[in-house]
Amino acid sequence: MPSSSPISDREAAKARIRAKLTARHNQTAREYLSCLLHATNTHSEAEAILDTFERQSDTAARLNRVLDICDKGVRAGEELVDIDRIHAAALGDDVRQSGGGR
């Protein structure tokens, strides 16, 4: 009779799956994307894709902050928009100054 029963094999498989899920939940978004990209690309290709994605995401976030500033000004009925605030948001300086940068 074999030393391992089907029940213990099943429990061991469940434990491995739980460990993989826990490891996945502990990964950052960049680590997770990196694992996925490395499965189908070379290391340099995967890193280039991640860098492009991060730049585009940062640009989109900055544009959204600029649009929010403009929308709030329009809703408040302001005739003059705070150009310095818009400029800082467009460059990402507003996040860096508040300590929210990466």
Rank of each mutant, 00 (worst) to 15 (best):
H43A: 10
A89T: 04
L37W: 14
E78F: 12
S8G: 02
G101Q: 05
R30V: 09
T28C: 01
L37C: 09
D84S: 02
A60E: 01
M1S: 12
E11P: 00
E79I: 12
D58L: 07
A12K: 07
R18K: 12
P2H: 11
A88Q: 08
F53I: 08
Q56M: 05
K72G: 03
T22I: 06
K14Q: 15
K14E: 10
R96F: 05
S57R: 11
G101D: 09
A48I: 04
R85M: 06
S98K: 07
P6K: 13
Q56I: 04
S3V: 06
T40N: 03
L80I: 15
N41W: 03
G92Q: 00
A15F: 07
K20L: 08
S98E: 03
R96D: 00
R96C: 05
D94Q: 03
Q56Y: 02
D9L: 11
D93L: 08
E45W: 00
D68C: 14
T22V: 04
T22C: 00
K72P: 00
A60R: 01
A88I: 04
E45R: 09
G99V: 03
E54W: 06
Q56A: 07
A76N: 13
S98D: 09
G77F: 14
D82H: 08
A76H: 10
A13R: 09
A46S: 14
Q27W: 14
E31S: 14
R18S: 12
A13W: 00
D58R: 12
A88F: 04
K72L: 10
A29Y: 06
R65W: 00
F53Q: 05
V81A: 03
K20H: 02
K72A: 11
T59C: 14
E79F: 10
H38Y: 09
K20C: 02
G100V: 02
P6I: 07
D58I: 04
V81T: 08
A89R: 06
I86Y: 02
A76C: 15
E79C: 15
L37D: 15
A90S: 13
N64C: 02
F53W: 05
E31G: 06
I7A: 12
Q56R: 02
K20A: 11
Q56E: 09
T40F: 06
E47L: 11
D84L: 01
A13T: 00
D9G: 00
G92K: 02
S57I: 04
E45T: 08
A88S: 11
S5P: 07
V95M: 08
R16W: 02
S44Y: 07
D71R: 15
G100Y: 03
N26A: 14
V74C: 01
S3L: 13
K72V: 03
A76W: 12
I86P: 02
C35P: 05
I49Q: 15
L50K: 03
A89N: 06
L21Q: 11
I7V: 10
E45N: 10
A90H: 11
A60W: 02
N41H: 12
A46C: 07
S57M: 10
T40A: 00
K20R: 09
A88Y: 05
I7T: 15
L91W: 11
Q27R: 12
S57Q: 10
D58C: 01
Y32K: 13
I17L: 09
M1R: 14
G101R: 05
R18G: 01
R24N: 14
L67H: 05
N64Q: 13
A88D: 05
V66C: 10
L50V: 10
R102K: 14
D71H: 15
H87Y: 12
A29S: 04
M1V: 04
E47A: 07
A29F: 05
